[in-house]
């Protein structure tokens, strides 16, 4: 994979971080405004963090009706890799591309801190370069990251190996410590933590590398792990 679209909604604010992180791994990243109607030229699509449409009503609720979302549905249905980070995860759940919902953190606290994540499945495009049980330190930065779903959905997620990442120490009340999930096919992934902000040990952690390298379909890098 070489060419990735980073979708920019009005109110997105992590698009440059995401693009820079992907380009540091040799991909070409193109910022694509949410009015775009065709994503077929790309090998992968990232929905970055931020506050799409101001997060009015509910995070992701209005972004779901942006023109780009029908193109994204087609892209995902064709098996194309899709990654929703933080607000992008919220958009994917509101759009029905991923099950469940993200609601306000337990304790109503905005959380901005590094978290240790445990890889729960390597069947997804995000975790395919990692190993089950790997611990990754990746920052979170959210108010509505409390993953919620009903019992039937949770059972399906577990049975189909769709829980991709769990928090080691649950910071926000997420059901079953869930930090990230995939769709059944594994090509659509959403997570609340920000792998694009964990690209260099100089800046706290390089554990995002293995995730984004996986997303780009690259071999795992030697990272001293």
């Amino acid at each position: 994979m070489t060419s990735v679209a980073v979708v920019v909604f009005p109110g997105s604010n992590c698009e440059y971080d995401a693009a820079r992180a992907l380009e540091s791994l040799g991909a070409s990243a193109t910022l694509v405004f949410h009015s775009a109607q065709d994503l077929s030229a790309f090998d992968g699509v990232v929905l970055p963090g931020g506050f799409a449409h101001g997060d009015y009503l509910r995070p992701g609720a209005l972004a779901r009706f942006s023109p780009v979302m029908s193109a994204l549905e087609r892209f995902a249905a064709g098996g194309g890799p899709v990654l929703g980070i933080c607000n992008g995860f919220q958009v994917l759940t509101e759009a029905g591309l991923l099950p469940g919902a993200l609601q306000k953190n337990r304790g109503l606290t905005f959380l901005c801190q590094p978290e240790t994540l445990v890889v729960a499945s390597t069947r997804s495009v995000l975790t395919r370069a990692a190993n089950v049980g790997d611990e990754l330190v990746i920052p979170i930065n959210h108010f509505s990251g409390n993953y919620t779903c009903d019992d039937a959905t949770h059972r399906e997620l577990v049975e189909n190996d769709q829980v991709v990442l769990r928090y080691r120490d649950n910071p926000n009340g997420s059901r079953d410590d869930i930090a990230g999930i995939s769709n059944r096919a594994g090509n659509v992934v959403g997570l609340m933590p920000h792998p694009e902000r964990a690209m260099s040990s100089l800046l706290g952690s390089a554990d995002g590398l293995v995730l984004l390298r996986g997303f780009l379909g690259l071999e795992p890098a030697f990272s001293g792990r």
Binding site: K104, N105, L108
Partner: peptide, 14 residues
């Protein structure tokens, strides 16, 4: 309103 059985952090904080 949040459905029955769904945690309501705002309600319980109040």
């Amino acid at each position: 309103t949040l459905r029955t059985g769904i945690a309501d952090p705002a309600g319980s904080t109040i």
